[in-house]
Amino acid sequence: MSASADSYYLPHGTPWSIFGSLGLFGFMLGAGLWIDGLNSVGPLVMGLGVLTLILTQFGWFGTVIRESESGVYNQQVDRTFRWAMVFFIFSEVMFFGAFFGTLFYARLFVVPWLGGASNMFFTHALLYPHYRALWPTNGPAHVGGTFSAMPPWGIPAINTLILLSSAVTVTLAHWALKAGHRRKVIAGLVATIALGVSFLLMQAHEYYHAYTHLNLTLHSGIYGATFFILTGFHGLHVTIGVIMLTVILIRVLRGHFTPEHHFAFEAASWYWHFVDIVWLGLFIFVYWL
């Protein structure tokens, strides 16, 4: 376990990754058994898998945090973490890209084609003569029954303000950390986490509203499908971001980080800004236009 300022830190063996793999395997195997209704142990296997994954995260990140605080990471290791986080966020951007691509493809091509655009005259005339290609739509078969689209200028607009404000508070916390004002860091982080949690509560309320009042559900054709997959995965990422920021807050309370050395903080804030920008795309293309 040798390391110094001029040599790259290399761990010698890790116990964590095999638990991570076992956890993932249990998670997926259990989920498969459950969702297929093949065997009643499904939920149990899945639960054990998820638990193993969570414990693995505690162990693995805990090890990394201890190493970081003991000062074995030099500048080059820091650069490694930066590049890795950049490309991890890039992979997340592409993941959302698949769903945004789906939304644009459905709106620009599929729905007009079902209405007879391009060379699809006979598709429309023979299969769906009564279908009018308008957005939002639940398709020619009217699946899921009549529904209303989510209006943008209620909860979604408030949520936009919440997330944009949280980008400001997390940046204020970062400036304070660089200036060495620990109280302001804590205040900024607490505010950011509070804003994130309120966003999630608002989102939960919006889903409740959609299901109970608008009849907007997963079954509401392509509109419902794209609406819930985009906002749902975004909500999941906000949750992950809140967890990351909470870990950072606990570390700040324990006296971790220096004004020069605090990449974990920056990584969490990069992630938070990424979630923020995805939301702007959602607000514009899912709710507004």
Binding site: T102, A106, V110, V111, L114, L127, T137, N138, G139, P140, A141, V143, G144, L218, H219, G221, I222, Y223, G224, A225, T226, F228, I229
Partner: peptide, 10 residues
């Protein structure tokens, strides 16, 4: 969901 079925607009 109806991402891939024309009946639902997918």
């Amino acid at each position: 969901t109806h991402f891939f079925s024309a009946a639902g607009g997918g």
